[in-house]
């Protein structure tokens, strides 16, 4: 590994040192977020006290199994939680000096698709099926930037070029169903880019795509982030994707962050038993074939039936009576910036 290569991969070295010696508050800071859903089965505490920060230009990954609260956290930041049944019950989301949770709805609309762009897993559901690609991009530009129709169209063509869509003029006139899954995701990225965002939140942006197209889309997003200093939050369950692209990693389990830290720390010195088990469970192409996989045993938790103890307890090989008493808090382990929520993770 040569130094120039490392630097070109990490143009945002400043952020790493800024994490250690903070001068400015982070670009985005989620503090003590609680979001719950009232369902027939009881109250689901989908997000149960989540805090994390995103520095300008950095890539933060959120991993964890389905239902652990990754999407609800992101939707809470964007204030897109359906109410009822959902409600943000506590916390704040500081973005560029303001608490997004206290903004009026018109102010929030300027943030969404303006300073914060969004890319979701299934672009078919987030693109409007009856509007042309062109209309969907120019609409954003007219709403947020006040461009006239000709200027907006020209900008839309530029954007499609930037996201690697060939024949942009023809594509502008097409409808979402006429594009492949990979191309629809490129369009979503173009829309997210339209207003020069400072942050893009991508929720499972490539889960539905082939590995080849997944690689193309992620390289595109990473390149844009690098060239323009856009911060990324990538929500995914793919540990390979996280290893390739993330600076910081937050591991979620049952509505909480159970481990958080720089990517290298999380992968090379994981402290939470869930993180350890998760990393162990995936077969790897770069290692000799194992006789047998080593899964995370047991089932994902039912969020309506959590007790007072550690939520990972039923699946944890290290659990003992002490783990039933309380839910462990996130505390520093190992190097600065690395923390885990486990009674046995310290040292």
């Amino acid at each position: 590994m040569t130094v120039p290569r490392l630097l070109s991969y990490h143009p945002t070295k400043i952020t790493a040192s800024q994490r250690e010696h903070p001068i400015l508050p982070p670009l985005l800071e989620i503090i003590g977020l609680h979001t719950e859903f009232r369902t027939g089965a009881g109250i689901v505490r989908a997000v149960d006290g989540v805090s994390y920060g995103v520095e300008a230009g950095e890539t933060v990954a959120v991993v964890g199994e389905s239902g652990s609260g990754k999407s609800v956290t992101a939707l809470s930041v964007m204030r897109l939680i359906p109410d009822p049944p959902g409600q943000i019950t506590a916390g704040s989301v500081m973005f560029a000096g303001r608490d997004l949770l206290t903004l009026s709805e018109p102010e929030m609309r300027q943030v969404r698709g303006g300073e914060i762009g969004m890319v979701f897993q299934e672009p078919m559901t987030s693109l409007n099926p009856v509007l042309t690609i062109g209309r969907q991009i120019t609409e954003t530009l007219e709403q947020h930037r006040g461009l006239d129709s000709a200027a907006a169209t020209q900008r839309a063509i530029d954007l499609l070029n930037q996201v690697g869509i060939a024949e942009p003029v023809r594509r502008l006139q097409q409808y979402p169903h006429q594009l492949s899954g990979g191309m629809r995701q490129r369009v979503m990225i173009a829309i997210a880019l339209a207003c020069d965002p400072k942050l893009i939140i991508a929720d499972e942006p490539t889960t539905a795509l082939d590995v080849t197209i997944q690689a193309q889309i992620l390289e595109l997003m990473k390149g844009l982030s690098r060239d323009r200093g856009i911060a990324l939050i990538i929500i995914t369950h793919n540990l390979g994707v996280v290893a390739r692209y993330a600076d910081q990693v937050n591991v979620m389990y049952a509505g909480r962050i159970v481990e958080s830290g720089p990517a290298a720390e999380i992968y090379h010195d994981p402290r939470h038993p869930y993180t350890v088990a998760l990393l162990r469970s995936v077969p790897r192409l770069d290692r000799p074939r194992q006789a047998r996989l080593d899964p995370v045993e047991g089932q994902p938790p039912d969020l309506t039936r959590l007790d007072a103890g550690c939520a990972f307890r039923p699946r944890c090989r290290l659990a003992d009576a002490g783990c039933a008493v309380a839910r462990p808090a996130l505390t520093q382990v190992g190097k600065a910036g690395h923390s885990a929520a486990c009674f046995k993770a310290a040292a």
Binding site: M1, R5, A243, A264
Partner: peptide, 11 residues
């Protein structure tokens, strides 16, 4: 195209 779950390998 398959990413390896190891940041050091990937970088």
């Amino acid at each position: 195209a398959v990413p390896t779950p190891d940041p050091t390998v990937e970088r």
